[in-house]
Simulated scan of single mutants.
Amino acid sequence: MFWLTRVRSNSMVPTLPDGSLVLTRSLRRTTPVRRGDLVIVNSRELGEPMVKRVIGLPEETVMITAGAVSIDGRALSEPYASPSVFSNSFRVPPDHYFLLGDNRDVSTDSRSWRDTYIPRNAIVGRILGWPWAWQTKGRVHS
């Protein structure tokens, strides 16, 4: 199934500015989730869907040092991410994911959520049309 998602924050700038309308495809529970995917997550903590980028996969160690991300000791190239001063380390549990916004010092994401890691069943869609995102007025959900 496909649907349109409206981005309702600046957490994904510059990739998806506030107000962007993007094509989203639902994910079956068996559909693989890959690093770099832009996904729609049903957040129990915030009570609304959110758009974030998949950074850490199950059982990986994500290290962030002054904004630079490495996965299991290997630097991750992130040309889409804004500079950040954040530093910390995270070990992703099985069947969970570590998600970040592209606008790192503005985004509320796995670094600040009470439930740091997102279970696979909370990832409900993948954005397909993000390179062709367009802006319109009004808000639907993010």
Rank of each mutant, 00 (worst) to 15 (best):
D72P: 05
I123M: 09
S11M: 14
M50Y: 13
S107N: 04
D102S: 03
D37K: 11
D115C: 02
V69A: 11
A133Y: 02
V33C: 05
D95Q: 14
E78N: 10
H141D: 09
P58N: 09
V124H: 12
D72A: 13
V124T: 15
E45G: 11
G36D: 08
E48L: 14
L99S: 02
R104I: 03
L38A: 03
M63A: 15
W113A: 13
H96V: 02
R74T: 15
Y80L: 11
S112N: 08
R35P: 14
I71S: 04
P79T: 03
P17C: 00
I118H: 01
R91L: 12
H141Q: 11
S82V: 14
D109V: 09
S11P: 05
V51F: 07
V69Q: 00
T136Y: 14
P14I: 03
V62C: 02
L128F: 09
P79A: 01
F86H: 10
D18G: 02
W130A: 00
S11F: 04
Y97S: 01
I118E: 00
S43Y: 03
P94M: 10
N103V: 06
G36Q: 12
F90S: 05
L100A: 04
G19A: 05
G125A: 13
K52N: 13
V69I: 14
P83F: 08
R74Q: 15
P93Q: 09
V106F: 11
F90C: 07
L128M: 14
T24S: 15
L100G: 01
F2V: 12
P79D: 03
S9V: 06
P17E: 09
V22N: 00
V54L: 09
H96S: 12
G36E: 11
P58R: 07
R91Q: 12
A81C: 12
L57I: 04
I127S: 11
A81I: 00
I64G: 04
H96E: 13
D37F: 09
A122C: 15
T31V: 06
N42V: 06
S112P: 02
D115P: 05
S43W: 00
V51M: 02
V62P: 00
R111I: 07
S84C: 13
R29W: 09
L99C: 02
T24G: 08
D37R: 06
A133R: 15
G73C: 02
L21I: 14
